[in-house]
Design a protein around this nucleic acid. Structure first.
Lengths: 143, 143
DNA sequence: GCAGTATTCTTGAATGATTCCAGAAACCAG
DNA sequence: CTGGTTTCTGGAATCATTCAAGAATACTGC
């Protein structure tokens, strides 16, 4: 977990202004991977006191645009954010409880990037979501 | 494109009641792949006259649950539906205009179903979304 | 260190897809 | 044909997210 000054450096490196809300949001995303926006707001407020949700939405968008965080949004879920970027990993989502876990790319480097027929698209990213049941829900449903 | 009576058979086969709205919605999803809910409502109304959006939402949920249609929901997009089910194909989405196209599974049968480390999840489906630019938007952005 | 300027944060309201609710209508079994 | 259940209608509610305008704050050059 990077320190505050490291977060500042990360922000500057992305040509983003360093503000308290931004450092707090970036820190929260690092601390709580796959957290939804409301959770992040809660963490940031616990850290800084009152912060408008608008600011958090704004910061999350700025960080996402800058590529410092990744936004993931499985069907039937609100937007979630994570700080692991640039390593082409994917996610498993539990159909029952919504738990999300990271999964490294299955077949090596970035194989998923190659579609069999790209229909004329120039593809730059492949996003994979595995659906299933987490160990807890799986056990519960077998009983 | 199946006929109305075929749609009826499909519905009965899934243990669903046959109603005019259901046939119309199923038909619309077959006719307009990747259409969003509002478009489907429009098509259904052109066919049957006034139909409540509630009915369409309801039918789409019933069909999705029954496995007759698939719901896809790329980030920053409303829910969309398609009738191709059970053949493990994926999608390319244009970042610029939102166009969606089908892509057959890249590496053969259902390889994506195997995650390198499933974190204890029992996985039953892999959903792949390729992000990029469609040929039209790609050309436009190069100029 | 300090003013100027552009970006960012606050407050509060609006948007829009989706869902909830209660009653009317339609479908299927016997 | 009738009963009973499921589905459809109409309208209102929910909730994540966004828009807008003014106040505050951070970076740039002096």
């Amino acid at each position: 977990m990077p320190t505050t000054s490291e977060f500042e450096r990360i922000l500057r490196g992305a040509a983003l202004r360093v503000t308290r809300p931004r450092v707090a949001v970036l820190s929260a995303v690092h601390a709580y991977p796959h957290a939804d926006t409301e959770s992040i707001i809660g963490v940031v407020r616990a850290d800084l006191g009152e912060v408008s949700h608008q600011a958090v939405y704004d910061v999350l968008r700025a960080l996402t645009t800058a590529g410092l965080v990744r936004r993931i949004q499985p069907s039937d879920s609100v937007a979630r954010y994570e700080a692991r970027v640039g390593d082409n990993h994917h996610h498993v989502v539990c159909r029952s409880c919504g738990l999300i876990a990271d999964v490294d790319c299955a077949v090596g480097e970035t194989p998923c990037l190659t579609a069999s027929d790209d229909s004329g698209f120039s593809i730059d990213e492949a996003e994979v979501i595995y659906w299933g049941l987490c160990s807890g829900c799986s056990t519960a449903s077998n009983s």
